[in-house]
Design a protein around this nucleic acid. Structure first.
Lengths: 228, 228
DNA sequence: CACAATTGTCACATAACTGTCGCGGAGCAG
DNA sequence: CTGCTCCGCGACAGTTATGTGACAATTGTG
């Protein structure tokens, strides 16, 4: 199937150019003229890649990016940011927000096409599964839902990320420090014991679905999800 | 199966060059453009070798290296560091952090390919395995579990480390002092007889799995795991 | 702004683990 | 066989790690 690329760009001169070149390279393409429209189309048509203008009417490009990254249907959606020349700090903010690549306007179309290919090539391995099942627990990262034995489990954001991480590595033991690094992020400083509290909350929530505690405590080492 | 090489490099000129050459030598190759992406791919695809740029956006190469070495899924993952010319102190830090080799940019591709082959060929004896099997005992250091004849054995932290150490050197006899040094740590002072107690506890736990006592007492010398 | 949800810390109870003793039995030299 | 040393193991008190309810601060929402 042809990759589907969304162009979020308000200057029609630019979007027409991109449209032309992308179609020539045999992609499915759509154009959104402002941030609001972009978000809607992202939601409805789940693009494989977004070319996202930095400055967009209604909802800015950076805001669109942020929303995709935390809480969007597919947080791994590849994004190439289009920015005006210069603006070094903007570049950094763009990558910080989670863009996969950025291109400064005006740009060479061949270069941009190369980057598009590169990003799309990258998604194959990096792309995470939509659903993971371990034992009687099913996590759906697209719908952001967790099920256990037919019942839905409500989790807070942190507990969700925690469970998500555990389910990607069933059986493996993680130290509190490792969990803080990956689930919380390496830049935030919180007490290691905080992990305990969140594991406790996760356990409590998971208890709703019945069955035994799926999280194993390994004394003086950390926690692991019972795998297999 | 083809060895899988991960390139963690943000300059596309360099990564494209490496990509081209590595593919020509029939490796599976992937590119990560920043440290964060690199960590993700390391986690998900378990490369056989990483070409790691010293300077990487988001998470620096040295930080990536550090995280692999302590606490990664495979702490023995071979790493070749790519650094800018000069920077002798950086070199040293790179090797200190645990890189297996380093190459200064700009580099000769043939030389780099030779080093890649060399590192992949190299099999270090001290290499830690995820799982070790001796007789009917299996120790899984990632999941932190011990099995004997299909049954799981629960061990306290000290007993676990003790068994782990024994299983890395089956058959070899260790004095109480050696065990204290390695399993307990050279800085703590405890009575030598304490080892006896923990060996006893380990035996008792292992008895759960059936079979005969796998630990041999060598009078006036120490203990050893019956190997083969 | 009020309200609900979420988060990080703390304090305390409890469970798990640790190191030491001491007794009795096993191994060994003469 | 005797006397000595060395080792196994149950008991125990001290220490450490973990589970959890409470709470204030923060964030998101309407």
């Amino acid at each position: 199937m042809k990759p589907f690329v969304l162009i979020a760009e308000d200057e029609s001169a630019v979007s027409e150019l991109l449209l032309y070149n992308l179609k020539k390279e045999d992609y499915d393409v759509a154009v959104a003229a402002d941030g609001e429209e972009a978000l809607m189309m992202i939601d409805e048509r789940a693009p494989d890649l977004i070319l996202l203008d930095w400055m967009l009417p209604k909802v800015s490009g950076i805001e669109v990016c942020r929303r995709i990254r935390n809480g969007g249907a597919n947080p791994n959606m590849p994004i190439i940011m289009l920015t005006a020349r210069g603006e070094e700090s903007d570049r950094i903010r763009g990558l910080d927000t989670g863009a996969d690549d950025y291109v400064t306007k005006p740009f060479s179309t061949t270069e941009l096409m190369a980057r598009v290919r590169a990003v799309l090539r990258r998604i194959r391995p990096g792309l995470k599964e939509d659903k993971i099942t371990v034992g009687d627990i099913i996590i759906d990262r697209v719908a952001h839902r967790v099920m256990r034995n037919e019942g839905e489990i409500h989790l807070g954001p942190t507990e969700f990320r925690l469970l998500d991480y555990f389910m990607q590595h069933p059986g493996r033991v993680f130290s509190r420090e490792q969990l803080l690094d990956t689930v919380w992020g390496s830049d935030v400083y919180v007490e290691a014991r905080t992990v305990d509290v969140h594991v406790g909350r996760l356990r409590k929530a998971l208890r709703q679905g019945g069955g035994e505690d799926p999280i194993r405590t390994v004394r003086s080492a950390g926690y692991a999800l019972r795998g297999d």
